[in-house]
């Protein structure tokens, strides 16, 4: 699977890619998987070769729940990539996953950048985007071996203070 066209971009995931290939293939099977260190057991994102905490080079994939909270967000009004113009205004969210929050130190977490989308994968309306809202992962299929993990609002009550730019 060398390349996928998406919104005017060429996403390059060559056969020798030792970071992302399995991540996006699992996403195509609608599973969110992260790398876990075989020595200390901690999860990490993005996929990498050494453990950020203990530097061990051994790892395995582990599936996570895909549930989390919006830690920050932005609304792109002026799209830079031409392929996103018909999507603007669109939200980009930084999602903090439920697994490993505040570990191993208080300010660390598994955070993932994605779009906040509706169940039909269109961008969520700005007035519904806020820090503190709960989200769950959904998958945007792009090709046989590639899907983008995205997030959509869940029906769970918010975590902590809910805030959006007025």
């Amino acid at each position: 699977m060398p390349a996928v066209e998406y919104r005017g971009m060429t996403l390059v995931i060559p056969d020798n890619d030792s970071e992302w290939k399995e991540y996006f293939a699992a996403a195509r099977a609608h599973r969110l998987i992260l790398r876990a260190c075989v020595a200390c057991g901690r999860l990490r994102y993005p996929p990498s070769h050494g453990c950020p905490w203990c530097a061990d080079l051994g790892w395995t994939w582990r599936e996570v729940s895909g549930r989390g909270t919006i830690h920050s967000y932005e609304i792109v009004v002026h799209a830079i990539q031409p392929g996103f113009r018909d999507w603007a205004p669109y939200p980009v969210v930084l999602v903090e996953l439920d697994e490993q929050r505040g570990q191993p130190t208080a300010d660390e977490a598994l955070r993932i950048v994605a779009n906040l989308v509706r169940p039909d994968l269109r961008p969520e309306a700005e007035e519904n985007v806020a820090i503190g809202k709960r989200v769950r992962v959904v998958f945007q299929d792009l090709a046989d071996q590639v899907a983008l993990p995205q997030f959509t609002l869940s029906d769970e009550p918010p975590a902590g203070r809910v805030w959006r730019l007025a």
């Binding site: 971009m9 060429t10 060559p14 830079i80 669109y90 980009v92 950048v113």
Partner: peptide, 25 residues
């Protein structure tokens, strides 16, 4: 128009590419 590969796959497919988009969070 540049191809997206490596670590850029963590952000650019989500329409997050310019400096403003990268820092706004």
């Amino acid at each position: 128009a540049q191809p997206v590969r490596g670590l850029d796959l963590a952000q650019r497919p989500y329409g997050m590419t310019s400096a403003g988009q990268n820092f706004a969070l």
